[in-house]
Design a protein around this nucleic acid. Structure first.
Lengths: 256, 256
DNA sequence: TGAATAGTGTCTGTGAGACAATATTAT
DNA sequence: ATAATATTGTCTCACAGACACTATTCA
């Protein structure tokens, strides 16, 4: 049987909502880029951007190419997530997919997105063994329901089954794995800064961490922890009816 | 071009060395299972156990099958590590490999290993940008030299280049990624208990953590941290010229 | 003046590092 | 007695959670 090799991309970014109350910081949300399928199978359904890996490229090369095609962005964070190879994951045959996570800064997208690509707001509701992922925008609403099972008790290793979803292929599974990975890495690395503009206030940065980790953070504790990773710029922004804030930028601590 | 899909396994275990001083605990080391290639390419060189993924199975199924074939073990920890798909990683053509990590308890291997499979002691020497991995046993000695490069400064994302090695294919790269993953997970999960027998003393457990993490641990601190993960059995072992120790077993804290 | 965020200070509890002290056994 | 590990205790320091307090701006 002939095997085909593809890649699928989880392109995450932060969305800034307009706010009617000019004093408040703009509300933010995690957003994920999806494209609408134009062909069978799953015609007219949403799915992750992706495509076949060419003979002369690796899956990472292909992921870079697709990121550029969909967003016109280059040189953003891109890392292998996992390979999905269930036998019947694609009705067209044996198609395996190595998924990648990319984190981008939406404001860097100068030109338009590719024709079929649209950002969706992402929300996760997690209960004991059920995970519900909602993707929403003005056009559509997508629901993904997953069941969580323990595989190996000694290592708290879980697997996830797709109960139902209105997204193409097994992309509900891929999105779920991607979110878990993003959260894990948000805690243990500086990955989040890939989604931030060059200059940002500590309040904005805290908002982003709160969205990714899905919990409220304590102001002073957050400042303490983040302090070593950022450095102040000379710029100050007066952005509403409150004390002005300083712009900070990411500090490279490579030597340490 | 036709693509072939394979899996390679990193099967890790802990080795107990005999000790001439009967008072001391037996020295331990991390060991990795390798097989000797019987065919070209890389004939007579060592490589990771692995093989083609059949049409009717996933790479995880194939990994389970190969683990059983090489060790006669089933139901041990097995988790996807990463997919390796460099274009020229295999001289026979475009062959991509999804690698898995398995952790096993050597003492559970009742029958012999498969004919070509042998355990090697593993040692890692890490300098600034150089990583040197040595695999040794009575039969042979394998050296793997890698260069570490930064890819994405904001996320401390690195990639590794194989400088030279006397192991087949890109398996030096796979081993390096596997060790990094093992260390990361040793700190953040209970994965290590998959390599332990059902009953063990805290001293033995500490030895294993020290080998994996490659650093000395403080006795009392280790006991404090590990206490919540283990529970005492009624058995006590008098194993030398020192105070006898209690056998412990892994405690499942799934409800918490 | 009040709403809202920026930024600082401080108290408390937890947990890790360091190390000391005691226990127990075989040789 | 001695070497070696087992087990417990304790002191200190770093850090996170919680919350209070001050600063500053615009409407």
């Amino acid at each position: 049987m002939e095997i085909k090799y593809t890649t699928d991309l989880l392109i995450f970014a932060i969305d800034d909502k307009e706010n009617e109350n000019c004093r408040e910081l703009s509300k933010k949300s995690l957003s994920l880029l999806l494209v609408k399928r134009t062909k069978e199978p799953f015609k007219n359904m949403w799915c992750l951007p992706g495509g076949f890996v060419f003979d002369n490229e690796t899956s990472l090369d292909a992921a870079k190419r697709i990121l550029k095609k969909e967003t016109n962005l280059q040189n953003f964070y891109l890392e292998q997530l996992k390979t999905f190879d269930e036998i019947n994951r694609d009705p067209r045959g044996r198609i395996i997919s190595t998924a990648y996570i990319s984190l981008v800064d939406k404001k860097m997208i100068k030109q338009d997105l590719s024709k079929n690509a649209v950002w969706f707001d992402l929300e996760i509701i997690e209960e004991k063994n059920n995970i519900c992922i909602n993707l929403r925008n003005e056009l559509d609403s997508i629901n993904i329901n997953l069941l969580k099972n323990i595989v190996n008790e000694k290592s708290k290793q879980y697997n996830y089954k797709l109960v139902n979803s209105n997204i193409a292929f097994d992309h509900g599974l891929i999105i779920n794995e991607g979110i878990k990975d993003l959260r894990k890495k948000a805690n243990s690395s500086d990955i989040i800064f890939n989604m931030m503009p060059n200059k940002f206030t500590i309040g904005e940065l805290k908002q982003v961490y709160e969205i990714i980790l899905n919990k409220k953070l304590i102001n002073s504790a957050f400042r303490r922890v983040i302090a070593s990773k950022i450095e102040p710029t000379n710029e100050i922004i007066k952005n509403g009816g409150h004390r002005p804030s300083q712009y900070f930028k990411y500090k490279n601590n490579l030597g340490e």
